[in-house]
Amino acid sequence: MRNATKLKSLVQERRAATVPGAPNALFARVIEDLGFEAVYVTGAGIANMHLGAPDVGLTTVSEVAQTVSAIADAVDLPLIVDADTGFGNAVNMVRTVRLLERAGASAIQIEDQVFPKKCGHFNGKAVIPAAEMVQKVKAAVDARHDADVQIIARTDARAIEGLDAAIDRARAYIEAGADMTFVEAPRDFAELARIGAELPVPQVANIVFGGKTPDPGREALAGNGFAIVLYANAALQAALKASREVLSALKVDGRLDAVADRLASFEERQAAVAKDAWDAMEAKYNGG
């Protein structure tokens, strides 16, 4: 079964499938090795790891597409791709969707923030008029070649206009053709429950460690009809903390003995990048 079809089937089950985020192909390989069912290609993660910059709209569609292509080459899992605002207006959205679908996206998430956007859990966000976003959703739906590729319409209006307005916007985006919606940054479980109950299509929850939305757990979210639960930057945050701890010890001690238990072994590192498979390929084509 094609990955887009797998993802379409998965979201229809509405069992709050846990989807970790990956900013690069190595993290995606770890996600696949651990048995997760899909990967979220995180825009914030690409900004943080590729640019060393915050999630404030600095990445380009080409940088995102290159990352998606690398991840699609490395793993055989559906990719849910964060496409920010579509990188412009409805016409830009057409190119964005076509480019990301060709790169390997099984779902493309777009949002109604003013461009350049900010992380959904930052303060100071602004949203475009709902009618403008409706046209962008229509453009995204029209632009995809594979009808199984999911168009996820995200609204950031909760922080600006309130939850009622955010739910109204999500309904409008569904009418425009969105397969799924994603109300970003609800403040408590009661708000999450309303989102799941009042919107008819599969929903996305986004759990950011240290962010604005509490984590009620997969069982509770599944009970409220959520299809996907994103942990967009858990791996990145873990890697950042571990890197600082290990490198701090190296700076002080000039050796790694004191932090050896925090390092993947040489063998674990090679297994993570499937070195055995590359060795077998080398032997095959070298006549070995």
Rank of each mutant, 00 (worst) to 15 (best):
residue 63 E to Q: 13
residue 73 D to N: 11
residue 218 R to E: 15
residue 93 M to I: 11
residue 58 L to I: 13
residue 18 T to E: 15
residue 132 E to V: 07
residue 81 V to I: 05
residue 46 I to P: 03
residue 77 L to W: 09
residue 134 V to L: 12
residue 215 D to V: 02
residue 173 Y to A: 05
residue 183 V to I: 10
residue 120 G to C: 14
residue 98 R to T: 06
residue 105 A to H: 01
residue 273 V to E: 10
residue 103 A to I: 00
residue 149 V to Y: 04
residue 127 V to L: 07
residue 257 D to N: 12
residue 117 K to C: 11
residue 209 F to P: 09
residue 73 D to A: 09
residue 165 A to P: 12
residue 116 P to D: 13
residue 262 R to G: 15
residue 12 Q to I: 02
residue 246 V to G: 06
residue 37 E to S: 14
residue 55 D to G: 03
residue 250 L to S: 01
residue 52 G to I: 09
residue 245 E to A: 11
residue 41 V to K: 03
residue 98 R to V: 02
residue 63 E to N: 04
residue 156 D to S: 04
residue 14 R to Y: 06
residue 58 L to G: 05
residue 167 I to F: 04
residue 173 Y to R: 04
residue 261 D to L: 00
residue 276 D to K: 09
residue 88 G to L: 11
residue 126 A to R: 15
residue 119 C to G: 01
residue 133 M to R: 03
residue 229 V to F: 09
residue 248 S to R: 07
residue 24 N to V: 05
residue 181 T to K: 06
residue 121 H to Q: 07
residue 46 I to W: 02
residue 28 A to T: 09
residue 1 M to C: 11
residue 223 G to D: 15
residue 229 V to Q: 08
residue 4 A to W: 00
residue 267 E to L: 08
residue 209 F to S: 13
residue 186 P to T: 15
residue 131 A to M: 05
residue 125 K to V: 03
residue 17 A to M: 12
residue 60 T to L: 10
residue 6 K to V: 10
residue 172 A to C: 14
residue 44 A to W: 09
residue 252 V to K: 14
residue 225 G to Y: 03
residue 216 P to Q: 11
residue 228 I to C: 03
residue 24 N to Y: 06
residue 88 G to K: 13
residue 203 Q to N: 14
residue 53 A to R: 14
residue 143 A to F: 06
residue 140 A to P: 02
